[in-house]
């Protein structure tokens, strides 16, 4: 069962093309959407909510997102880094407003989260620090216990301690009910190493990678070798390479297979950032 199914999603702006994007967000999974600024992450998320028009099919909870828009939105919690209900509200106002939008709004859960985050109830959101603002948004997104969380940069502006607290919260949210899913876009890919089950890497409007995080971290490798050794590697056995002054760095998809085939044993474990860089800047 997939909570989100996107097929051939395309969107053209002046000078930008989101090109035939297809992906799934399975139930029980946390999917991390990564990519450079302007690669198409936010455009993809906007399309899921019909905030922008698009070509292609989007199914959420198995239903067409355009036909069943209202019904679907009742079961989603959303967050944007740069957009909120209003900055001229305090947390109590927000509670009264959100109650009217969601039948499943859980006042107790909302105030418990605010308390956990140490947020003041009577201060206007505009006077909050950026970290506090983000926490309010997270509390608001989760308080109606939605089936799906779609979060655009939910950890930006948060310090490491709070970030880890939030990631725990997300993990618990899935553990509570494994039919739920989270789709989150982020710049901070180290967060994803600890939380995401799948990585969706979007570059220049195209999906270049859609793999289990596990596979990315365990199977992908970076081989450092001499030019002589590099020339022996067949093109189909590596993703891309970077040529340095003294060595070649080569990104490969399967460490073990590579070891067996080429006998090269010094293979580094790349971070998600490393892998992104190889895809964006590496040569083929």
């Amino acid at each position: 069962m997939n909570n989100i199914e996107v097929r051939n999603l395309s969107k053209e702006y002046d000078g930008f093309l989101l090109d035939n994007v297809s992906f799934d967000v399975p139930a029980g999974a946390i999917v991390g959407l990564i990519g450079e600024n302007g690669a198409g992450k936010t455009t993809t998320i906007k399309a899921l909510f019909n905030i922008i028009g698009f070509k292609g099919d989007v199914k959420i909870f198995g239903k067409d997102s355009k036909v069943y828009e209202k019904e679907i939105k009742k079961d989603i919690g959303a967050l944007f880094d740069d957009s909120f209900l209003s900055d001229y509200l305090n947390c109590k106002h927000i509670n009264k407003i959100m109650k009217d939008f969601y039948e499943t709004w859980d006042e107790k859960k909302y105030f418990d989260l605010l308390k956990q985050f140490d947020l003041p109830l009577n201060k206007l959101v505009k006077d909050f620090s950026s970290g506090m603002k983000m926490k309010v948004k997270i509390a608001v997104a989760m308080a109606h216990s939605p089936k799906l969380l779609i979060l655009d940069e939910p950890t930006s502006g948060l310090d490491p301690v709070v970030r880890s607290e939030i990631l725990d919260l997300f993990r618990k949210y899935i553990e509570e009910d494994e039919s739920r899913s989270i789709l989150l876009s982020t710049h901070i890919t180290t967060d994803l190493e600890h939380i995401s089950d799948y990585i969706l890497f979007i570059d220049n409007g195209k999906i270049v990678l859609d793999v289990p995080t596990d596979e990315l971290l365990e199977d992908y490798g970076v081989v450092k070798c001499s030019e002589e050794d590099f020339l022996k590697i067949k093109a189909e056995d590596y993703v891309s390479y970077k040529k340095g002054k003294y060595q070649y760095a080569v990104l490969i998809k399967n460490k073990n297979e590579f070891k067996r085939k080429y006998g090269i044993t010094t293979i580094d474990k790349p971070s998600i950032d490393d892998i992104m860089l190889f895809y964006i800047r590496g040569e083929k």
């Binding site: 029980g28 946390i30 990631l167 725990d168 993990r171 618990k172 553990e175 600890h194 939380i195 995401s196 089950d197 289990p212 995080t213 596990d214």
Partner: peptide, 8 residues
């Protein structure tokens, strides 16, 4: 969750 890694 305990180990803070993917369930996969």
């Amino acid at each position: 969750n305990e180990l803070k890694i993917s369930f996969l």
